[in-house]
Write a protein that binds this DNA or RNA. Structure first.
Lengths: 245, 245
DNA sequence: GCAAAAGTGTTTGTCGTACACCCATGG
DNA sequence: CCATGGGTGTACGACAAACACTTTTGC
């Protein structure tokens, strides 16, 4: 199956990965590197989001899915199209122009930005052909194009969304502890939460189900494990507008 | 200023207008009409959203603003880019193909969809050159392209957003009554709200300010008028994450 | 037995909800 | 004086917030 790419439309993927151990919300970035012909100068050396042109016969969602599979090998991840970026000058700083000349793509490209949610450890980065690397959301490297802006807007959207929809569980293993959920909220929102109140609130939810299991291999008191039941959640929230204006 | 249009990228605008008198949430649509050469047959006769190609030198936001000004003469309206639509077959039903042949644009066009909020009576529709017309959100006519889908998604986004951000006031006159706000919520969400509880909740907000004015020209008890203070709202909500997971 | 993290309870105030009648006005 | 829509009050239960110590475990 050979697909013709559309020269001025791309998708870019902000891949959020949460690392339960280090309690770090990370973004997966790929290396952008170019030397001059004599190899005397480094022309471009920074990071960018993974992305690619949309092809003639695929939907935007399919393009994003394809790009992510190409980078990580993973499919069936939580995915959200959150914004289109199309300023005429979005690819116009010095390094971007060098890169575009080298890669030959359209100066006026608009990109449909997606974010994906997964666990950092799901991705095997050794020998990744794009030199992909995780960076903490609050400690990003130099970024090419308008990708810093894209990441920040994705993060804002994630902040809002995680308060209204149960998407945090996409960032956690199937079996998790209450404190892991709290740590994750704190990482995303950049705030401190009272542990006692948080516990009570979370355990009360019918869709948070205590398992007959505790953590193993932990050198301290092992914590109770819970799971999230999507089924229960969807039954409860069928038509549940809560008008908290 | 002559701008070259990009043949495969457009913006489409869902214009929501609220009519305080009839308590109707409306969408502004333009006529799509085409007869056969002999004028014997009506080939296309339905409605579509207003939209146009994005030009080479403008941002997506500017394109949407331009399109809206062209249709309504208005600027400085609340505007939100809410989603990009780009399925390969989004313009592929029978009437769309006839229309596209006639209008000569790219079969694989992706569109960045915006919605705008205003008061129905702000727009003068007499002699509108696009034969624009208001339709109640729950009683839409036959729509071309994928525009019904776009409108429904805009409405969903509006439903969510109006519960978390003070955007309802964009749909109301500067001076409004409590019952007008309630009617509007009910129109958007399609639900009934208890008047006593709603009043109390709304009046308690510091950014809802009672004026020294009542309705005039009303043939019944005139209601107290209020205004929304954006200043006060923004001061209060500087960093107000409320974790109601 | 100690370090580390898990887990637990109470109080106070606020808020959501359910519910039915009186009031002010213009005609 | 009446029809219409505006406006009001209370009680109950649920939830949010503030706050500090005990328990369990592996080592």
């Amino acid at each position: 199956m050979k697909l013709k790419k559309i020269s001025n439309i791309s998708v870019d993927c902000v891949v959020f990965g949460y690392d339960t151990l280090t309690k770090s919300l990370n973004v997966l970035l790929i290396k952008r590197y170019l030397e001059s012909k004599t190899e005397a100068d480094i022309l471009v050396d920074d990071y960018v989001l993974t992305g690619y042109h949309v092809c003639e016969n695929e939907t935007l969602d399919d393009a994003a899915t394809r790009v992510l599979k190409e980078l990580t090998g993973l499919t069936n991840l939580y995915k959200k199209q959150f914004k289109a970026f199309g300023d005429p000058d979005r690819l116009m700083n010095e390094k971007d122009l060098i890169w575009i000349k080298h890669e030959q793509f359209n100066l006026r490209t608009i990109t449909i930005a997606y974010y994906f949610l997964l666990k950092t450890e799901e991705v095997a980065l050794e020998e990744n052909k794009y030199q992909a690397k995780w960076f903490p959301i609050r400690n990003l490297p130099d970024l090419g194009f308008d990708h810093e802006k894209i990441i920040l807007e994705a993060h804002e959207d994630l902040k809002t969304k995680c308060l209204h929809e149960p998407i945090i569980f996409e960032l956690l293993p199937d079996k998790f502890t209450i404190n892991e959920v709290q740590d994750l909220y704190q990482s995303i929102l950049g705030i401190e939460i009272d542990n006692r109140n948080f516990r009570r609130k979370l355990i009360k939810k019918k869709y948070i189900i205590a398992l007959d299991e505790k953590q193993i291999g932990i050198s301290k008191k092992p914590a109770q494990l819970y799971m999230f039941s999507k089924d229960v959640y969807e039954k409860i929230f069928e038509k549940n507008y809560l008008i908290h204006i």
